[in-house]
Amino acid sequence: MELTPSTTAVIAVHMQRDIVSADGAFGGFFAAQATERDVVGITGKLLDAARSAGATVVYTRVAWRDDYSDLVVNSPLLGIVAQSKCLADGSPKAEILPEIAPVDGDIVVTNQRVGGFASSQLDVILRSRGIDTVVFAGVATNASVEGTARQASDLGYRTIVVADACSAADPAAHDASIASLGLLGEITSSAEITEALGAGQGTA
């Protein structure tokens, strides 16, 4: 695999306490597999490698106004948000996990849909930086990761999903999503991405 750091963004999808942590509103769905697969640890190392290589680091986070006036409930996932009153912008559990918190120079994009490009500035931000390749990690593989990756592919980006840096509610859901995404982009590992970013530093 070849990557040019200057035109590559590594995107961490919805690595928020309400989604990934056991005490989060979606923790009952996603925390066990995220912990078992060490998604936070692997993603953290991946983001560090991206920064070291000079690639762009992006976080997408999903959050709504505290009165939920911007929440459109048209799916079961968003129905859980309405019922549990989670992911309110400014609340501690809506923030990026402190273990992999953004640093100076990183980009944080807040959105209100399952896919990170919908009703957000993500596409504008990436294109303004000359990004043509997007590398995805995060939770859940078969929801926000897949949704955002599908949008990226439709928008013309080279789309790469890091399989060992993602998780879903159960292994079968993760595997099925990865198999589906293989038709729309490239499936790889965190080790391969780290190696490719390092090899491409000279072209950054």
Rank of each mutant, 00 (worst) to 15 (best):
A152T: 05
A196Q: 01
T203K: 15
I125G: 06
V161N: 04
S75R: 07
I11N: 02
A53R: 13
D18H: 08
P92S: 05
Y68K: 11
D170E: 09
T43Y: 04
G130D: 03
D48C: 00
A149I: 10
L183Q: 12
R37K: 11
A53Y: 13
I125A: 08
Q33D: 10
V72N: 15
E2V: 06
T56M: 14
T133E: 10
A49F: 01
G44K: 10
A101D: 09
T141Y: 02
D38H: 15
L97Y: 03
Q121Y: 11
S52D: 09
R158K: 12
V134G: 02
Q151L: 11
P171S: 02
N74Y: 10
P102K: 03
Q121V: 11
S190A: 13
Q151M: 12
L97S: 02
Q16H: 06
G115L: 03
G202K: 14
R37D: 01
D89G: 00
V109H: 10
F136P: 04
N142C: 02
F30W: 10
E36R: 15
D89R: 11
E192C: 00
D48V: 08
S6D: 10
G28W: 04
D104Y: 10
D123A: 11
G130E: 04
A199F: 03
A94Y: 07
V73G: 06
R65M: 03
K93M: 11
R127H: 05
F117P: 01
V57M: 05
V139W: 03
K85E: 09
G116Q: 08
V73I: 13
D170H: 10
V134E: 02
V10M: 06
P171I: 02
F26R: 14
S21R: 12
D48W: 05
I100H: 09
V114M: 13
Q112F: 08
S120E: 03
L46Q: 12
G198T: 09
V58N: 02
F29R: 13
A9Y: 05
V10N: 07
L126N: 07
D38F: 11
V58S: 05
V124M: 14
D23M: 00
A49G: 01
G27H: 02
G27F: 01
Q151V: 03
G185T: 01
S75H: 14
N111C: 09
N142L: 01
G41M: 08
V73L: 07
D175H: 14
V108S: 14
G79I: 01
V103K: 15
T159Q: 08
I187D: 02
V162C: 01
T194S: 13
E195M: 00
T56H: 14
L46H: 12
I96P: 03
